[in-house]
């Protein structure tokens, strides 16, 4: 049985100009043009979006969520990365 499997592309939509792109899901397509058209047809039928990115699924690099603790900030005790931790005198300007 030959594989007719059309490659998988992940779709990212920018809901309006200036907004961040959001992952919408995926489509199957054989080339870039088809992927864009399929993404447009599937994910922006109701006018949801100003711009579309499509990326071949196997080109995406992802962190592994099992590594979450070491990849991102470990432990709750290291809150000092967040500006709210520091109690700064209100008199200090520009911070």
């Amino acid at each position: 049985m030959s594989t007719n499997e059309l490659p998988l592309w992940e779709v990212f939509i920018q809901p309006k100009t200036g907004a961040p792109f959001q992952h919408a899901g995926n489509v199957h397509a054989t080339d870039k043009e088809m992927a864009l058209q399929n993404a447009r047809d599937l994910y922006t039928r109701r006018m949801e979006g100003t711009c579309i990115w499509v990326v071949k699924a196997d080109e995406i690099v992802s962190s592994n969520s099992n590594d979450q603790e070491s990849f991102f900030d470990p432990a709750n005790d290291k809150v000092y990365r967040y500006p709210t931790f520091f109690k700064v005198s209100k008199k200090a300007k520009g911070l």
Partner: peptide
């Protein structure tokens, strides 16, 4: 089937539609 095969073949020939 013939449509899917043809689309795949074309993509391979043109290196993913470049």
């Amino acid at each position: 089937q013939w449509v899917r095969e043809a689309a795949l073949a074309y993509a391979r020939k043109t290196k993913n539609g470049e």
